[in-house]
Amino acid sequence: MARLGRLPEGTPVALELLTPGSCWRLTAPLNLYSHWRGPGLATQACAGRCLEVLALPQAPGDRLRARLLEDGYPGWLEPQDLLGHGRATVPPRPRLLDAASIAEAIPAVLAFGRQAQNQANHYLWGGTLGPDFDCSGFTQSAFASAGIWIPRDAYQQERFVQPVAVAPGCYGLLRPGDLIFFGTPRRCTHVGLHLGGGRYLHSSGKEHGRDGLGVDGLDAHLDHPVSAHYRAELRGAGRVVRCHDGTTLA
């Protein structure tokens, strides 16, 4: 059985090399799905990302199980999507950026957000590559554009950040680039990127009055239906002060 890094660096993907433990750097973007069959998109990976094969298909037509190495995110992918679109590699080394280095990169994170907002887009569950994003796919991609890896899903991002106190109309401790979290008392289900002054950029769906990226706010006097909906579900906020170390998150 092949193990991580056992293949010569740069070996192109071939069907017989897709063994558990083999590690590949993508040369083209691909989709990872939430199940071994069916249409449910889990996330997307851009060219240049690395993944590890975890398990092979159990039956013809099934997908293989894999894990993206920059954030530890698992999913299923079509073997043919990887064939010809990856090169053997070793796992990437974690980026040990400190809080000061991350703070210096926040303008680039915000610039990514402005550029994404200015493109035609729609909300896409699992969307990570753009121009169509889901909420946490957008925030992860914004930080990744500046070389900072954070976890994939909103609830994972909430656990990952350094907490910052926030309440509707009371956001004086927030800085641009902080993440604002929403959901139920039991679970975080949504995230936005703070722009300043309580305003945040996020990708939300049609059921709450928008379909894609838009700016909303935490001020109680804002009566826009999207702002009002998420303000009622505000859970907290946090600051990214470290890079993800590549370990798997539950």
Rank of each mutant, 00 (worst) to 15 (best):
A144E: 12
A2C: 12
L222E: 09
P60G: 07
G172Q: 14
W76K: 00
H35Y: 09
A165D: 14
D211E: 14
T139W: 07
T19L: 15
R152T: 03
C23F: 10
H229M: 03
Y33T: 05
M1N: 02
A28I: 10
L124E: 08
G10D: 06
V161F: 05
G183N: 13
D62V: 04
L129M: 09
A111G: 06
L234D: 09
Q58P: 00
T89Y: 06
G127N: 05
A2I: 15
S141L: 08
G40N: 11
E78R: 04
R242W: 13
G10P: 02
R152D: 06
D219M: 00
A55N: 01
S227P: 01
A154G: 03
A228F: 08
G236K: 06
D211H: 11
R49D: 12
Y33M: 05
P20G: 08
G38T: 13
Q157C: 02
G196E: 10
V161K: 01
L56Y: 02
P74Y: 13
A47V: 07
A232V: 02
L110M: 05
R231F: 14
I150T: 09
S203N: 06
G40M: 12
Y200I: 02
S136R: 02
G183Y: 11
C188D: 00
Y33D: 00
A99P: 01
A55W: 04
R186M: 06
L17H: 14
V90L: 15
G238V: 14
R242F: 13
A14G: 03
L15D: 14
Q58A: 10
I150S: 02
Y230W: 15
Q58E: 12
H244E: 10
P107Y: 02
L173M: 11
Q80G: 03
N121G: 02
G196C: 03
G192V: 08
L213Y: 10
L30I: 14
P29I: 06
F133Y: 15
L18N: 04
F143Q: 01
F138I: 07
F160K: 02
A88Q: 05
E158F: 15
F160Q: 00
S204R: 02
T184V: 05
A42M: 09
A111K: 06
A99T: 11
G198V: 13
E70V: 10
G212R: 03
P131I: 07
Y230C: 00
G48R: 04
Y230N: 00
P57Q: 04
A47G: 10
N31L: 05
G214W: 10
